[in-house]
Amino acid sequence: MTHIKRAAVLGSPIAHSLSPVLHRAAYRALDLEGWTYDRFEIDESGLPGFVGTLDASWAGLSLTMPLKRAILPLLDEVSPTAASVEAVNTVVLTEDGRRLGDNTDIPGMIAALRERGVQKVDTAAVLGAGATASSALAALSKICAGPVTAYVRSTARAAEMRGWGERLGVDVRTADWAEAAEALHAPLVVSTTPAGATDALAAAVPDAPGTLFDVLYDPWPTSVATAWAAHGGAVVGGLDLLVHQAVLQVEQMTGRAPAPLSAMREAGEQALGAR
Rank of each mutant, 00 (worst) to 15 (best):
A8S: 07
P13H: 02
P20V: 08
H23Q: 15
A29V: 06
L30I: 06
G34Q: 10
W35C: 06
T36F: 08
E41V: 11
T53V: 04
G60F: 01
K68T: 09
A70L: 01
E77W: 13
V78D: 01
S79K: 03
T81P: 03
T81R: 15
V85S: 07
T90K: 05
L100I: 11
N103E: 01
G108L: 06
R114D: 05
R116V: 06
G117Q: 02
K120I: 12
V126L: 12
V126R: 01
A131V: 13
A131P: 00
A133L: 03
L137F: 11
L137Q: 11
A138M: 06
A145T: 14
T149I: 06
T149P: 10
A150I: 04
V152E: 04
R157C: 05
A158M: 10
E160T: 11
E160Y: 13
R162T: 12
R162K: 15
W164Y: 13
G165C: 12
G169W: 04
D176K: 12
A178V: 12
A180H: 02
A186G: 06
V189E: 03
V189M: 04
S191V: 01
P194H: 01
P194W: 12
A197S: 13
D199R: 08
D199N: 14
A202Q: 08
A202C: 11
P209D: 09
T211M: 02
L216R: 09
P219V: 08
W220K: 09
H231M: 12
G232W: 09
L242A: 05
V243M: 03
A246T: 12
V250M: 09
P258E: 00
S262Q: 15
E266S: 14
L272F: 11
